[in-house]
Structures are given as C-alpha cells and as structure tokens.
Amino acid sequence: MKIKTLFFGVARDIVGKDELLIDVQGNTTIQDFEARLLNQYPDFSDIRNFAFAVNESYVDRNYSIQKNDLIAVLPPVSGG
C-alpha cells in the first residue's frame, strides 16, 4: 500500500520534499518505518528523537500502519 508521508522542519530538508508516497507492506510498524527511513536517508541519524503522527495525532513506535493512513515525521518541536 502507498502511504502518504509528510515531512517537517529538518526532516523536510533531509528528504528534500514536503511529502512522499512510500510503499509499505502489511504489518509494518512505525518502528519498521523509522528504520527504513534511516536506511534510505542516513542523515536521519537522530530520528530516535523524532515523533510520528498518524492522521494528525501522535502515535508510538508500536503502531501498525493501516491503509489510507497519513503519516507525519515530526522533529523535536520548537514553538513558543
């Protein structure tokens, strides 16, 4: 399944795009997804400090990606 993935802040700089369609197998967790991003883009060396959102809410690394999910890769926030 093709999963739309959004990138923000330094993550956008690393990928060079705001969003990608990433092909994902069934039973892929956020942890698997994170490992794959790191493998594909080694500049994500501190991705363990990043958060992931699915459909605009934070999820933990155990979350299993579902069809039609919208993933967001969120570096440590710095608002305020």
């Binding site: 923000f8 802040g9 700089d13 959102a53 967001a72 926030v77 710095s78 608002g79 305020g80």
Partner: peptide
C-alpha cells in the same frame, strides 16, 4: 505547547541558519 505542538523554529544568523532543537 513547547513540548507537544508541532511548530518548528528556524533561526537566521548573519552567517547561516539552523532549526532549533533539530
């Protein structure tokens, strides 16, 4: 807000720019 709201600040200096907390 500083812990959870997905907002990112980039600082611009005379000699470059950096994502805060990146």
């Amino acid at each position: 807000l500083k812990q959870t709201v997905p907002i990112w600040k980039k600082e611009f200096f005379s000699d470059g720019e950096v994502w805060v907390n990146a």
